[in-house]
């Protein structure tokens, strides 16, 4: 069955079995291995991508369900050599150790910051409930999301709110 999707601004068309999960479509058919498979059971969030702008677990979506959709993976965050503010913030705030959960964490954080540019710590923790990290203990991830929120608000000239 044919699937046509736009991933990180590039249109791809491929023939797949209907049972192909979106995460394997991205990794194995398109070679975009930045999206990770952690649990394969809808629990860990490592496979999180943006599907038409919203964070989803791509191990729990069929590639054929994404027909016609716009998808953003971690490979689509940076603009050339310029890291996305969420990537820069994860770097600056030590938001990762092994990095396995990081692509999914960052895309879940982007979903949050689109809805709520100035989230409180509690709102950040709530928004990342679907993403598990075995290394960091989460505090540095929360710090990174707060730093990204400040950087992004400053960039659009909006008043940067307090926590």
């Amino acid at each position: 069955m044919n699937v046509t999707v736009t991933v990180n601004g590039v249109r791809y068309s491929r023939d797949v079995e209907p049972r192909t999960l979106l995460v394997y479509f991205l990794r194995e058919h398109l070679g975009l291995t930045g999206t990770h498979v952690g649990c394969d059971t809808s629990t860990c969030g490592a496979c999180t991508v943006l599907l038409n702008g919203k964070a989803v677990k791509s191990c729990t979506v069929l590639a054929v369900q994404a027909e016609g959709a716009q998808i953003t993976t971690v490979e689509g965050l940076a603009q050339g050599d310029r890291l996305h503010p969420i990537q820069q913030a994860f770097w600056d705030e030590h938001g990762l150790q092994c990095g396995f959960c990081t692509p999914g964490m960052m895309l879940a954080a982007v979903d949050l910051l689109q809805r709520n540019p100035n989230p409180t710590e509690e709102q950040i923790r709530h928004a990342l409930e679907g993403n598990l990290c075995r290394c960091t203990g989460y505090q540095h991830i929360v710090n990174a999301v707060q730093a990204a929120a400040r950087a992004m608000s400053a960039a659009v000239g909006a008043p940067s709110g307090g926590e």
Partner: peptide, 9 residues
């Protein structure tokens, strides 16, 4: 319900 990703789908 669940988490953000589950609520989005």
């Amino acid at each position: 319900i669940g988490d953000v990703q589950v609520r989005n789908r």
